[in-house]
Amino acid sequence: MGKITLNQVRKSFGEVDVIPGIDLSVEDGEFVVFVGPSGCGKSTLLRLIAGLEDTSGGIISIDGMDATDLPPAKRRLAMVFQSYALYPHMSVRKNIAFPLKMAGMDPAEQEKRVSHAAKILNLGAYLDRRPGQLSGGQRQRVAIGRAIVREPAAFLFDEPLSNLDAALRVSMRQEISELHQTLKTTMIYVTHDQVEAMTMADKIVVLNAGRIEQVGSPMELYRSPANLFVAGFIGSPKMNLIDGAEADKHGATTIGIRPEHIDIGGDGPWEGVVGLSEHLGSDTFLKVNAGTLGTLTVRASGEVMMHHGDSIRMSPQPGKILRFGADGKAMA
């Protein structure tokens, strides 16, 4: 079981309110991703849940029990750190067994669990090496191994992939997702990378300046962002945000349209001059200077060949324009 509930949880460092007050509920077995720009308080929030920081107010409960004042060890949570935080003086085997040893578990049972974890994570061949002799991806797996042997109520991940190179990041992302499918344990995952958030999460929590901007499934956030911040943060390349006369036409202060929702060619209502075209092979991203609309990013198919200076016409796909009011919130 691993249901985590935050009730008006606050954190301030001295005078500064890092987290002014958060309510959130994480269901058992859910994969929840905290995402937001650096300094938004997502790591602090995770550390509050872990018990590595004291809350300044509010209640954290785990499986219905008040855990606000419990020390980290008593919360039945396991954490994977950004730097992996492996014990450099212990072999992989001892690293993974450390939490079991701390719990005073019988050595035979320890050994059983370690080999089980090693099998799941493909670490069998490395059990007697030191962390220093492993690659980044292998270290990451050891860190995960150390977390899973305890069979915790929930896993906490603090930007675990940010030290890996791009290719490894993709495969580790899949491994963690598969692990979640297998274990069906609650996972809370912190990242600043919205791609990780979109691909892994059951539920995304978008944080900004210590506040929750929106909570929802990846597609909900993609289709109907609650406000301009989420609109701008989720999706890559970023959503085009247009204000002024064009927005007025739709009765909004700002309108948003995703690059993939703009068609080019024909006799679309918007026109512009291509500034830059990035050919990725499968897709082509065009930066179009569209006069009063500003610079628009447009996604076209990979076969479209456009060059700097070409004039084009564009039309937004029907029903894909999002409208935002003066307060930045989405309009119905």
Binding site: A50, L52, P71, P72, A73, L77, A78, M79, F81, Q82, S83, A85, L86, Y87, P88, F98, P99, M102, A103, R146, R150
Partner: peptide, 18 residues
């Protein structure tokens, strides 16, 4: 010594002494 390693130990259930 990175503080994260000591925090990891704390998460792993180590007492201050351990």
């Amino acid at each position: 010594i990175p503080g994260e390693i000591l925090e990891a130990a704390r998460m792993d259930g180590a007492s201050l002494k351990s």
